[in-house]
């Protein structure tokens, strides 16, 4: 059990998202940086689908109400356990009464904005429609369907066998699987249904210009600022299912990339879709930073997903080995 003692807005409980409820209008939710959440669970020996806390406003502090192993991943927030500084992407054991503090992300080497706190056994909130992720729009899932506030208490689930070993870490996938274009963080994009109906200038801008993440960007969508993207002629599309990653372009020409809390359907024209394998990169891009889109193919997009899966499998294998070698307590 942990108690939140300080939090900014919009820290939420998230897992890998809610599948299979789109037909009721329920979007997926889930961690914006799904690799960081999975890595935190791997460090603890948890199931990869276990829930953790996604933190995007700092400082953030929790008190441990019982002895508990935890992992911190995502943005490097200069974490400390009482006065012991912790490396980023690290698993540690805390004793009852200890306080974990996360500060403002340090972004010199990796410009990231969201941190994840995982607990041995996973954050135990009720499963709703198959997931523990917070559904902010529907006000269910997570803790009472809302962001966390000071005084909230979260329980850790039943501990996995062999878990509870601290003192090691993982190297962030942002460094192991880098992707940049013109010196800026990049994400790969597959053209979408209306791509061909955009002007040549729009195509050029999409692939060759930087896109600034505006302050109106959140878990629902990233509103980007750059050269306006115009259709050759206006079109109205009928509402249809969409997925996180879809780049919608409202009539003002400024694209909105749908993120994990996105609606499961929409009607704005779509110029492209950020591939699932790269959504975590966008999920970490801070407000005010600039990103680039890189055109990709189906085969490359599949290979990118497999590379992520391989990274996670290797992290899992080595973390399990290390935990097994050093810990039997």
């Amino acid at each position: 059990m942990i108690e939140i003692i300080a939090t900014g807005a919009l820290a939420t409980v998230q897992d890998h998202g809610r599948g299979g409820a789109l037909k009721w209008g329920v979007g997926a939710s889930g961690a914006l940086d799904n690799l960081a959440l999975a890595a935190g669970n791997i460090l603890l020996g948890n199931d990869e689908h276990a829930a953790g806390v996604e933190i995007q406003i700092f400082p953030f502090q929790v008190r441990f109400l019982e002895d508990c192993a935890f992992a911190i991943t995502g943005a490097d927030c200069g974490a400390s356990l009482d006065d012991l500084p912790l490396p980023p992407w690290w698993v540690q054991t805390a004793s009852v009464g200890q306080i974990l503090s996360l500060g403002i992300p340090r972004q010199r080497i990796w410009r990231a904005s969201r941190a994840y706190l995982c607990l041995a056994g996973g954050v135990d909130v009720p499963l709703v429609l198959g997931s523990r992720s917070t559904q902010l729009r529907g006000t269910f899932g997570g803790l009472e369907g809302r962001p966390l506030r000071s005084g909230d208490r979260l329980r850790a689930g039943a501990r996995a066998n062999g878990a509870g070993r601290g003192g090691f870490g993982l190297s962030p996938p942002a460094l192991d699987l880098p992707l940049t274009e013109g010196g800026l963080p990049a994400v790969r994009v597959l053209p979408a249904a209306e791509y061909a109906q955009y002007t040549e200038a729009a195509h050029q801008a999409l692939w060759n210009e930087p896109w600034r993440v505006t302050p109106q960007s959140d878990r629902y969508g990233y509103r980007l600022d750059g050269a306006p993207l115009h259709l050759i002629a206006p079109i109205e599309t009928r509402s249809h299912g969409i997925v996180p990653g879809v780049i919608q372009v409202p009539p003002n020409g400024q694209p909105i990339v749908q993120m994990r809390d996105a609606q499961p359907s929409g009607g704005y024209p779509k110029i492209g879709v950020v591939i699932e394998a790269d959504l975590w990169r966008l999920g970490q891009a801070p407000i005010g930073s600039r990103i680039r889109f890189r055109q990709t193919s189906w085969d490359e997009a599949i290979a990118a997903g497999e590379l992520n899966a391989r990274w996670l499998a290797e992290a899992r294998r080595l973390a399990d080995l290390y935990r097994g070698r050093t810990g039997s307590s």
Partner: peptide
């Protein structure tokens, strides 16, 4: 994974993306 009707359209989400 799921077949999701829209307005005279249908989205099919993949349980895992097919090779082709």
């Amino acid at each position: 994974r799921e077949a999701v009707p829209g307005m005279n359209n249908l989205m099919l989400s993949f349980s895992r993306p097919p090779a082709c």
